[in-house]
Design a protein around this nucleic acid. Structure first.
Lengths: 419, 419
DNA sequence: CGCTATTTGTTCAGTGGTTGAATTAAATGA
DNA sequence: TCATTTAATTCAACCACTGAACAAATAGCG
């Protein structure tokens, strides 16, 4: 039983690529029904599910029986009552079944969290520490420690971890190796190998690797997808030390040919601008990165701890400090120019400002919208929404955990076969 | 039987969104087997199909029987022989079954073509005419005339038209209305209504509209997808009078939230550059549009007919005319800056230069690659291919016709139900 | 309180489509 | 000529969904 590590497929739609045997039929309907239960506002009855899916009540009953037996669904006791007739038994995602472990390594903190099927965060730990001076092996060791505690807490609550996902601020290849994490100073770090010594993460469940490593911005976008406005298409911009983006198209994260999409921080804003350490010139990060904003606001060298600088920025913006407002306007314009390009290219109708940008949205939104209006061909007919992210600061960790349970919801047959 | 017109869904994957009844099973396997036959290099046998799909030979035989009965597949007479054993009967897409009608309106020509299931172009007509002074109604009338002749020719060859697609150089909404076609001078043209008077295009087949209207660049990209290197992800840039792009992700055209993706011509290259008539500043079209290149090459006002200007450009480039080489280098650099942004965002590994750019590839490719190398974060590890389009000048018309037959291949059950 | 109307959920024979093994078909090669 | 080999078909078994009938559980009404 070899442990496989791979980065792709965190979110796979229920499209059968290969042969469709008769068992696939049940698999697809399991996914269909479970998906409806997950998406429903209030607990739906079997009859309601039959009506909205087009299946017969008999089939829905059979499918639900499987789901209940597999601890994915339970019947809601407080039945929501309606008019006459036999009362419906509401179905909800089980709170004591499988759960996902989400991990995050960032420049100045480690995070671990556990999310159950229903999307509730059942455990959350953040450990602040500047990880730049720490070796990757040490950092991953500390992370494994956090993960072990998270697992223990989850089991204490009766949850079963069904997998884990780890977000890192850098480029990850198919084997889970971190090719480049500039702000962390990592280069070609074989995360799977380094974590292989730590027990709780090395088990393989089904054909799916027990741990999926992915870009932090991708996972944050997935978190936004599942917690936010539901399926659709949007661009989620993560303003951390660097600037990353996750692209959600039609309710699915788009990863690109090799999983390296969303490197929005190095899109040129001014092709002849100052050189960037990526080798290019005039990249967005030089105008809207955290360092650039702090410098323009005159806050560089104000010996602030790295993690309080964004909060300070918000404070000063709220009291209307001129230099800060100017810095944010400049940054917003640069973001707007870039976002306009993205919208011209992809025709998205929503832009989500995440990470450190989220609390700065009131000041960033106007210049961003102004550039969109000026530069997007279709802006006149179809407005673009710019809104802050709904998830908090550790969106990537929550999104990572969510991606694990979302995979089970998208393909419950795999989980049921394990139990 | 109302005629519905819509622009979306030219290429829909075989993913069942709703309930999966037992009939869907056959539908999915029909699509699976037909898709393999279409993708295979040499005519595969039933046994080979069974082996690669995972279905049993019995099932494949039954499925193939349906496909043959529906005139989608025929047995190839000259059986390709192998070693010992009963000889296989090769299966090929039928050349006398359904076919697609492809139409194109561009600034200086109209085109119509017919493509059969196998992708062969069975009819092709181009009528050159400057359409800017012509009213939309007149232009569409001429187009309907071309379409009628194409249909007559197709029927003479024993083909049955299964639908039509029309490419226009502009933005098309879900109802088939051309919201804006700047280079044609069209604005809010209700193509379906105007064409409704012309008989051969107004029939509705199945739930699918008889005519799909789409952006020319999108259809050209689809043509490239089906005729070129097969599935994958690439950016197809159509260099016509304006600059459009079609984005193919994982073998499927990406249309965006409203079908208006790919407006690459108005991505800002220099945010503070000269004003563009789109309202923005420094758009790509100002640096790499046909007019810009001709002007920089000193060919503006050289009273060339519009349609021979690109050819003249190639001639002069081949003899090494300095001004032309310089103009192409400048245009290539601008394209490269833009393409670098796209690749940073989407992580594509292939860029296809289409339309008027195709023959200019030898001169455009070096500066494009240079900018990619400088500005794309991952360029060091993963090379990007820049190549000319394989389809000729009327790629959009051929792609339009191909999109019709491709839909049948992706969802043969719909066609079989009609016969 | 009892009856009916109403809606939910289950049971069961029927059916469509796939499976797996046996059978037939058509060639090669010794 | 006959064994070998591969291709394709036939057929009983089986799986999952359908449709209709039935049982369960409640509200409303006299």
């Amino acid at each position: 039983m070899t442990t496989m590590w791979q980065c792709q497929g965190v979110n796979s739609p229920a499209a059968p690529a290969g042969a469709v045997r008769q068992g696939s039929l049940r698999e697809l309907n399991l996914a269909l029904v479970l998906g409806r239960i997950a998406a429903a506002g209030r607990p739906p009855s079997r009859a309601a599910l039959a009506a909205e899916t087009g299946l017969t009540r008999a089939t829905v009953s059979a499918v639900v029986e499987d789901l209940v037996a597999g601890r994915l669904v339970t019947e809601a006791e407080p039945t929501p009552r309606a008019g006459a007739g036999r009362p419906a038994r509401g179905l909800v995602l089980a709170g004591d079944g499988p759960a996902g472990l989400g991990l995050e390594i960032n420049v100045d903190y480690l995070a671990a969290c556990v999310v159950d099927l229903a999307g509730e965060v059942r455990h959350h730990t953040v450990r602040r520490a500047d990880l730049r001076p720490v070796s990757p092996a040490d950092a991953l060791g500390r992370l494994a420690d956090l993960a072990a505690r998270a697992r223990a807490d989850a089991e204490r609550q009766g949850l079963t971890l069904a997998g884990a996902a780890l977000g890192v601020p850098g480029l990850v290849d198919d084997a889970g190796r971190v090719r480049l994490a500039p702000n962390l100073g990592w280069r070609d770090v074989p995360v799977p190998e380094l974590l292989a010594h730590h027990a709780p993460l090395t088990e393989t469940v089904d054909g799916v690797p027990a741990l999926v490593v992915d870009n932090e911005a991708n996972l944050a976008a997935l978190g936004e997808l599942h917690s936010g406005a539901g399926p659709g298409s949007f661009l989620h911009i993560s303003g951390e030390v660097g600037i990353g983006a996750g692209i959600v198209l039609d309710g699915a994260l788009f990863r690109g040919a090799r999983g390296w999409s969303g490197e929005i921080g190095h899109i040129p804003v001014r092709p002849d601008g100052p050189p960037c350490r990526c080798g290019g010139r005039g990249c967005l990060e030089l105008y809207a990165g955290q360092e650039a904003i702090l410098s323009a606001a005159g806050l560089i060298g104000a010996d602030l701890p790295a993690d309080t600088a964004p909060a300070r920025l918000t404070q000063l913006a709220e009291v209307g400090q001129a230099a800060v407002l100017h810095a944010l306007a400049e940054a917003g314009t640069a973001i707007g120019v870039t976002v306009a390009s993205v919208i011209n290219l992809l025709d998205l109708d929503t832009v989500v400002l995440g990470g450190a940008y989220a609390p700065l949205t009131p000041w960033l939104r106007p210049p961003v919208l102004a550039e969109i209006d000026r530069r997007v061909l279709t802006a006149a007919w179809s407005p673009v929404t710019v809104r802050p992210a709904t998830l908090g600061p550790n969106a990537a960790a929550v999104g990572a955990a969510g991606s694990v349970v979302r995979r089970i919801i998208a393909r419950p047959a795999g989980w049921l076969a394990r139990v």
